[in-house]
Design a protein around this nucleic acid. Structure first.
Length: 474
DNA sequence: TTAGGGTTAG
């Protein structure tokens, strides 16, 4: 479409008006590789360029990751505006090149609130909260965006105490809540599982009688669901006067991920009854629910229905859910067949899902078959260690050793997975064999006791342990 | 034309 407009304009000779090509350059960069080429073509043939033409071109290049090209144009540019500087600064920040970003920041002839916020954002995303905080404190002016960036940064990294302190200070300084602030902070809470901070924001919303948009309510529901507070998610969801597809999706996904398959399917049914059209994300939630709750046949039915009844062509993610569903249900051959017949090249996630199913059922032979296909993703560290786990589960220690040796020879290391828990506004993170926590003695003592208690309590094979969902009645 | 924002499998 953009290209059609472009041709039309070129034919009619409207290229003279600077606003038109400027808007085109800006639009082109949304279309990735070919878009940026077209934009560059247009940029070079333009007779007159103003600051906006340059800025749009440089911004477009940074968006598609052509940082070097962007820098070249920047250096060539005769008269730069502060937006030009900020655009390149943002390019470095988005690419995680903080040294370059800092150097550019230092050499800026002038800086504004956006320059400062961009740099704080960069350090915060890079996990350097100390540097982010130093810059934040130094900022001459602060807006709700700068507060949001630093608070979300702390929340995401698990520093709930610092986040809450700053949040209180922001409120004392008279900053009003806005959609961007609430959504950003709640999203960070959902990401890191910080229920305490989430509750704090929810409390402000009610205390200040902040009018929640649908988007804000959706994030609130999602935050509670991701933090494991399904009853609160459910009550916010039910209190919403208006809902959109995302509202239904987050609620459904919330039930699904915590193993409440029946509730998830109930939400699905109600959503349809109320006239909402399920989309691709809805079906990921539905299939995930069926998989985690062991509703194999319902899952298969939904998978076929999504294309037939709703016109949604399954994507690789949906196939991934199906492979998980069949795999967990010990229908490994069918799962393997689906991997081979689906219209996508299997990726690391697909193989990992299949391998996980092999491990669950100790199917070493099938795992070997998977290994034959493995060459595609040889470098994925997670798959290597999962393969080692399959062998370990089957007691094949030679197999384990072989995989470990392979990992060593190609130089992969698996970043260890971590779980976290929030106690007294602080998120504690644990990894396997982690002895770095100051109270590890008593922690492991308790884990050991719990494990023994669990062993004593007989529970049926394959059944998940019952989880209390509070006063959940649907 | 520059800084923060909701849902997506293992």
């Amino acid at each position: 479409m953009v290209e059609m407009i472009h041709t039309q304009i070129e034919k009619n000779g409207f290229l003279g008006d600077i606003f038109v090509p400027n808007a085109l350059i800006d639009n082109y960069s949304r279309f990735g590789g070919w878009g940026i080429k077209a934009a560059l073509r247009l940029f070079t043939v333009m007779e007159h360029r103003d600051v906006v033409s340059w800025n749009s071109m440089i911004g477009g290049l940074t968006k598609v990751g052509e940082l070097r090209e962007a820098r070249k144009l920047f250096d060539e540019m005769p008269e730069k505006s502060i937006i030009t500087w900020n655009t390149v600064l943002n390019g470095y920040v988005k690419a995680g090149e903080m040294e370059e970003a800092f150097q550019l920041f230092e050499s800026m002839p002038q800086r504004n609130i956006v320059s400062w916020s961009t740099l704080v954002m960069g350090y915060s995303k890079a996990g350097d909260m100390d540097m982010a905080r130093v810059l934040f404190d130094e900022m001459p002016v602060k807006t709700s965006v700068s507060w949001t960036i630093i608070i979300s940064g702390y929340v995401e990294k698990g520093f709930t105490k610092e986040a809450i302190e700053l949040y209180d200070r922001m409120e004392r300084n008279g900053f009003k809540l806005d959609d961007g602030t609430v959504i950003s902070i709640l999203a960070a809470c959902a990401e890191s599982g910080s229920l305490a901070m989430g509750l704090k924001v929810h409390d402000s919303i009610e205390r200040l009688k902040f009018r929640c948009s649908v988007a804000v309510c959706n994030t609130l529901v999602n935050m509670y669901a991701k933090c494991g507070s399904l009853d609160k998610a459910w009550s916010v969801f039910n209190g919403m006067s208006k809902r959109d597809v995302v509202s239904w999706n987050v609620m459904l996904q919330g039930f699904a991920m915590h193993g409440h398959g029946r509730e998830a399917l109930f939400v699905f049914e109600r959503m349809k009854k109320e006239g909402f059209k399920p989309d691709r994300v809805t079906f990921i939630g539905v299939l995930c629910a069926c998989s985690h709750a062991g509703f194999i046949d319902e899952g298969i039915q939904c998978f076929y229905a999504m294309e037939k009844d709703y016109g949604i062509v399954p994507e690789i993610e949906h196939y991934g859910c199906m492979i998980d569903l069949l795999g967990r249900g010990e229908r490994l051959k069918e799962a393997f067949m689906l991997v081979n017949t689906m219209p996508f090249e299997p990726n690391a996630v697909i193989w990992g899902t299949l391998l996980g199913a092999c491990r669950l059922h100790g199917a070493t032979e099938l795992a070997e078959k998977v290994l034959d296909h493995f060459k595609l993703d040889r470098m994925d560290p997670g798959n290597y260690s999962m393969l080692a786990n399959i062998f370990a589960a089957a007691g094949d220690w030679d197999g384990v050793a072989t995989v470990r040796l392979q990992m060593k020879s190609v130089g992969v290391q698996k970043p260890s997975g971590a779980s976290s828990i929030e106690i007294d506004n602080e998120v504690h993170e644990f990894t396997v064999f982690d002895r770095s926590h100051p109270n590890f003695d008593s922690i492991y003592g308790m884990v050991h006791r719990l494990a023994q208690d669990l062993k004593r309590v007989a529970h049926p094979k394959d059944a998940t342990l019952p989880v209390e969902v509070g006063e959940l009645v649907i």
